[in-house]
Amino acid sequence: MNVTLEQARALDALARQGTFAAAAKALHKGHTAVLYALRTLEEQTELVLLDRRGYRTRLTPAGERVLEHCRKLLEAERELEAACAEIRAGWEPTLRIIFDGIFPAEPLLRVVKQLRAEGAGTRFHVSAEFLAGVEAAFTRDEADLMVSVLPPTLPDLRSYRLADLKAVLVAHRSHPLATQRGPLKDEELARHLLLTVRGSDPRLQLSTGALEGRSTVHLNDFAAKKAAILEGLGYGWLPEHLMKRELRRGELKALKLASGATHLFHPSLHHRAGVRLGRAASRVVQALTGVELPTPP
């Protein structure tokens, strides 16, 4: 069966207008064109779609059912037209963003919310990875943007430095390490579990790097790591933005180390240098960095 959009429009117009003449006027078509479209539609469906016995032509029950599907065709046409218009206006069909899970998701989600409120039809895919997994996912998924805390190894990237993220080595207030006075030595730390998210990376140059091979529990993300620390399972590095309330309440305690219990991560935003960004990606870059990119034509 090859139902055309012209046939769908004719049936929809007749149902709305009630007469062939009014339907033809609404469609800016000749009376005979509407008659022909509906007659061929009945032939193709092998159904009686119209009750022609009264002054006003009405749809039969079969016609009402066919009308439902015809209107779905017309709605699909409108959606296709809108999608094409958005793409012509510079909105990319999809935007894939990979970010390191230590980076707060709120700035990314905020700009996505703003773009959706403005009517952007771009489909957003925002996912978190960690450390070297960020670049691996960026390559594997052919993502458009990535926020990483490790320097990328891929060539031909355009990079933007983002604000530093402060992390603190903490334990629950009841944990033995949190109750000790004076700087803690590596031997004291090694007696307890050091919690990490999927393992650390030597490029971070964390002061606890030498301890990771001996006493670690690897967790899936920072939410799980925070929960484990609050349960007193062990100690570990947490981004300050994730635990401000717990630090303020004293539930978590910053550990005292001779080498310092704070660490600055240096996140950067990256995209491929040879690819012109669409409007959505450009807005994300501007929101995170303040750099205004040229508007796509």
Rank of each mutant, 00 (worst) to 15 (best):
T139R: 04
A128L: 09
K185G: 09
Q17V: 01
V48E: 15
G290R: 06
P93T: 05
E135R: 00
T208N: 03
A82L: 03
Q17L: 02
T60H: 07
R181W: 11
H31R: 11
A89Y: 08
V170D: 09
R39S: 04
Q17G: 01
R123Q: 13
P107C: 08
P61V: 03
A210M: 00
A82W: 05
V149Q: 09
A136M: 08
L49S: 07
R158H: 13
F130I: 15
L38Y: 06
T216I: 01
R248F: 12
P155K: 00
V285W: 07
L255V: 02
E240W: 07
E77Y: 07
T4R: 12
G213Q: 00
R16N: 11
Y55A: 02
P152E: 10
L233V: 03
E86W: 11
V34M: 03
S282M: 00
A76M: 08
V126S: 08
E118T: 13
F20Y: 15
P239D: 10
T45E: 15
V275S: 05
L41T: 07
G30D: 14
A37F: 11
L157E: 00
A223C: 03
M1I: 14
T60Y: 04
P151Y: 06
V111H: 12
E86C: 04
E135T: 00
L169E: 05
P107V: 14
L108N: 11
L230H: 09
E231M: 02
C70K: 00
A8W: 02
L162F: 02
H175W: 14
G101D: 14
V197W: 10
T196N: 08
P155Q: 00
L162C: 09
R88V: 13
A190D: 08
L238M: 02
D186M: 00
S282N: 02
A82T: 04
F20L: 06
L165G: 05
R116N: 15
S200K: 05
R181I: 05
T153P: 02
T208A: 02
V149K: 06
R123E: 13
A117R: 15
S148L: 01
I98H: 06
F138A: 01
L145R: 04
L238H: 08
A33E: 12
G278A: 14
K72V: 10
D100L: 03
I87F: 11
L195C: 11
K253H: 09
A37N: 13
E118W: 10
L145C: 11
I87N: 08
T60F: 02
L109V: 12
G121K: 14
L193T: 10
R71S: 03
E77C: 04
E187W: 04
I102A: 09
H192M: 07
S200A: 15
T32G: 02
K256N: 13
T295Y: 09
T57H: 00
V197F: 08
K25E: 15
P93C: 06
R78P: 11
V34S: 06
R161T: 15
M146K: 03
S174W: 12
R191H: 11
A89V: 08
L150G: 06
R248Q: 09
I102H: 09
Q7R: 02
T94K: 09
R173H: 10
A117T: 15
L189S: 01
L293S: 13
Q286R: 10
G133A: 07
E46N: 14
S259G: 04
G274E: 14
L162A: 04
